[in-house]
Computed example of a mutant assay.
Amino acid sequence: MSADVRFTHFKSDKQPTWCPGCGDFGTMNGMMKALANTGNDPDNTFVVAGIGCSGKIGTYMHSYALHGVHGRALSVGIGTKLANPNLEVMVAGGDGDGYSIGAGHFIHAVRRNVDMSYIVMDNRIYGLTKGQASPTSREDFETSTTPDGPKQPPVNPLALALAAGGTFIAQSFSSDAQRHTEIVQQAVEHDGFGFVNVYSPCVTFNDVDTYDYFRDSIVDLQENNHDPTDYDDAKDAILDADKEYQGIIYRDENSTPWEQREGLTENMADIPDGAPDDAMDLVREFY
């Protein structure tokens, strides 16, 4: 079966309710293409999401899925992967869900290095609740609740991941379809926790971090003689506040996933006899 055919298998019949032009459309398409390119199928894929504009992404993708509570998606994803190591687990979230209430889970997920991927749609604003400043908003970003800006530096999720011992740290742009797909695919293929922060513009509430801004600002590390296996190079790129980088920022080629280190190879999930063959349809209908 070709990757193009598998890609269509990941498309749900549910129509997204995102604003027209939302960056999450491109982010999700890249996720589905990456899963298809790596040979995965819906029946061996589990997508977890938290709260925010990205929260219903599992509804829009044809796979096992769970729409969880705010900031806890990584906990569900880790538990699922450890219960059934044979599943391809992909967690999706936003900058608010992942770097605010979910920041503690993020740090510990990175350091555990479970073999899964985490895709964060970073639009630098709280879009679902109508435009408040998020952890990654600029210090002078004016909103209805921060008319003079947050007056605090934005969270640097890449720096947090590197400091926590991340083994795969990357950044992509939802509008650069081919490059975004390549980066997510490498995160899926990585032996360990594959983290990708995605520039995913909010066209409704953020008129600063726009498509045009990112197109004009992004520097692709692949074209910049960057060595993703060099820790110091990665640190320099991450701490360069004047650049918006795209690409694989850091990759530990000797990464050993947590479950391999602990000898966890068997499926711990106890599937009862007589479980319905159409369980996936029942799960999707429920959510």
Score class of each variant (00 low, 15 high):
residue 163 A to Q: 09
residue 143 T to W: 11
residue 140 D to K: 07
residue 173 F to I: 03
residue 153 P to F: 12
residue 174 S to I: 13
residue 171 Q to N: 10
residue 134 S to P: 13
residue 131 G to W: 07
residue 167 T to Y: 08
residue 181 T to M: 05
residue 135 P to E: 10
residue 180 H to Q: 09
residue 142 E to F: 02
residue 165 G to V: 04
residue 166 G to I: 00
residue 176 D to A: 11
residue 140 D to P: 04
residue 180 H to V: 09
residue 155 V to T: 15
residue 129 T to N: 09
residue 173 F to V: 10
residue 184 V to N: 08
residue 166 G to S: 05
residue 152 Q to S: 04
residue 174 S to Q: 08
residue 127 G to P: 13
residue 184 V to H: 03
residue 186 Q to H: 12
residue 129 T to Q: 05
residue 163 A to W: 01
residue 173 F to D: 02
residue 172 S to T: 15
residue 137 S to P: 06
residue 183 I to Y: 02
residue 157 P to R: 05
residue 128 L to W: 10
residue 186 Q to L: 08
residue 174 S to R: 07
residue 182 E to Y: 05
residue 137 S to E: 09
residue 175 S to E: 08
residue 166 G to F: 01
residue 135 P to S: 08
residue 147 P to Q: 00
residue 126 Y to S: 05
residue 134 S to T: 11
residue 179 R to M: 05
residue 163 A to K: 07
residue 153 P to E: 14
residue 186 Q to C: 06
residue 139 E to I: 05
residue 179 R to N: 09
residue 126 Y to V: 13
residue 132 Q to M: 06
residue 161 A to Q: 01
residue 131 G to C: 13
residue 170 A to K: 01
residue 154 P to H: 07
residue 134 S to W: 07
residue 178 Q to L: 08
residue 174 S to W: 11
residue 179 R to C: 06
residue 155 V to W: 06
residue 155 V to K: 14
residue 130 K to M: 04
residue 173 F to S: 03
residue 148 D to G: 00
residue 129 T to F: 03
residue 137 S to R: 10
residue 174 S to G: 14
residue 136 T to E: 12
residue 157 P to Q: 08
residue 163 A to H: 04
residue 161 A to M: 05
residue 169 I to P: 02
residue 160 L to K: 14
residue 130 K to P: 01
residue 171 Q to I: 07
residue 184 V to M: 14
residue 135 P to Y: 06
residue 133 A to R: 00
residue 143 T to C: 10
residue 151 K to Y: 05
